[in-house]
Write a protein that binds this DNA or RNA. Structure first.
Lengths: 168, 168
DNA sequence: TCAGTATTATACGCATACGTAATATACGCG
DNA sequence: CGCGTATATTACGTATGCGTATAATACTGA
């Protein structure tokens, strides 16, 4: 029956409950610690490659700019998944570190367009290599199919948390 | 053959590469955004339940103290997965918000033991209910077996990033 | 005993992220 | 045209986390 199938596939409270208070069993604990640990691994990867001025937080913006240079602050934030107010400080640091520069848009004086510097453009392949290498290490022992599953599940959760935000 | 099996199970670079620069395909992007989104959802859950003074960052420490009250700062940090220097500020805020208190240990004057206040102990069931409820929403549409898979994969990754840290 | 080392917690500076408020500019409608 | 609204960005305060340095205390071996 459809009902039985639905019940079978439904979330089982026991599978997500943190009532027994074992961090290793709490998805929230796992996600946040993995996120912190992966960020630390990225930071170390950049430092060891001699480009410690590239911070993990820059990745979303750099990736977006490598794909399309000269984006507005707000569009860059949308693609990186960050609030506009977060972008200000981030871009301050990226500018300080010589990766991007802000240029006014003559067509709309409210707008600043973000452009890669020569350095920001040049490090592209190096950075991608470090990100991929770090992911290989962090995901070592996880099979290819499992990685696809992981990505699929995380994408689903990401949709849920974004809807949460909108509803509120 | 063992070799063929190993090759089959090995991480496929194509599965983790961020070279095509699509955030939705990059596990690092997914993990960090899900972590931020889940934390925001927890924060909202507490606020809506009228206990906004409970912050998501307190969860690891609260869970540990509900299990065993009177832990030292360093042991609390180990269980919550946080550095000692991070614990100082966290405990400052938890103390300010009336959830815990520091008490000297007569047996070792370097040590401060952390105890739940009456409030900190009383909110236990409420907090666990909100955490579980938030996880149910965030994981809605994800089947029970998938959640177990997700947890298993995250635990494996967590081990990897912790080894990374030690080796460095 | 006491000199050297280890442990515990904190202090401080920095990075990263959010929300709210303020500022400057653009746009739409009468 | 000009007024009210919308948009883009920044400013500011706060939370959360790390690393390094420091202070106080404990331990250990000669």
């Amino acid at each position: 029956m459809a009902t039985e199938q639905a019940a079978k596939d439904a979330v089982n409270p026991a599978a997500v409950s943190c009532a027994d208070i074992d961090p290793g069993e709490c998805p929230y604990y796992l996600i946040t610690r993995v996120s912190l640990g992966a960020t630390a691994a990225m930071k170390r990867g950049f430092a060891e490659a001699g480009i410690g001025f590239v911070r993990p937080a820059y990745l979303g913006s750099l990736m977006s700019l490598w794909r399309e240079d000269g984006l507005r602050v707000i569009d860059l934030g949308r693609r990186a998944g960050l609030e506009p107010s977060t972008m200000t400080g981030l871009l301050d640091r990226m500018e300080r570190d010589g990766l991007v520069e802000r240029r006014p848009d003559p067509a709309d004086r409210r707008v600043l367009k973000i452009f890669l510097t020569e350095t920001g453009a040049r490090i592209r392949q190096t950075v991608i290599g470090i990100v991929d290498g770090t992911l290989l290490r962090v995901l070592s022992g996880v099979g290819r199919g499992e990685i696809d599953t992981l990505k699929e599940l995380l994408r689903k959760v990401l949709v849920n948390v974004r809807e949460e935000r909108v509803e509120g």
